[in-house]
Amino acid sequence: MGKVLVVTSGKGGVGKTTSTAAIGAALAQTGQKVAVVDFDVGLRNLDLIMGAERRVVFDFINVAQGDANLSQALIRDKRVDTLYLLAASQTRDKDALTEEGVKRVIDELRDRFDWVICDSPAGIERGATLAMRYADSAIVIANPEVSSVRDSDRIIGLLDSKTLKAESGEGIEKHLLLTRYDPARAARGEMLSVEDVLDILSIPLLGIIPESQDVLKASNVGAPVSINSTTSAAAAAYIDAARRLCGVPVPMTRPTEKVSMFGRFFGRRAA
């Protein structure tokens, strides 16, 4: 039986899809079977980030409504052969998802994969609540800025009340992934510090992903950063986060002290 993870944040643009792809790829590279599932019906992106946009034939809605079976809809990654994508439908909207349909697809995925990673849409409406509904644990993505942190706090509240795990009284496991962390700006006090964010959200930290050009470059070429540029700091942070998910105690590297070094490092690479 696999583990169902939801990647969620409330706010848009904080890195849910990028993180889903990067963590999915990092887990798959260890040989585990991973399915990444796009729940953003109508605004799908995960296929682009995974570089599979031209291979989508059937999507989540087709499977949920019984028009296709799961094997037809799952797209195997060309680089990591234990990594699969279930794309969202771009032409439908989120009302096309039903609770029963989602449950059936998730149950089937859970049987076939070690990890099922659900990329939640932004917001707190139907799409987001369905994405988290059947999850065993959640990765809450936040940027170190107040609006993102507040939205994440709202999402944690929903995770604690609207998921099946929460309703059964078991409680849902939650991890914080702090993305787009810019050590230089944090040092100048232009961003919330890691401590501030942890203090407000009070859930365990899974990792800190530094703001990096490599993430953007990887997205543009349609490859998760953890496959495309494995030597970058962002990729290393995602790989560490994935190992922590598997229960490996990896020490947390906080990019705060190495401000100038990071600056020079990235400065050279970008040039």
Binding site: I124, R150, D151, D153, R154, I156, G157, L158, D160, S202
Partner: peptide
């Protein structure tokens, strides 16, 4: 006994 989250 738990934090009161945004929106709650």
């Amino acid at each position: 006994d738990s934090p009161v989250r945004s929106g709650q």
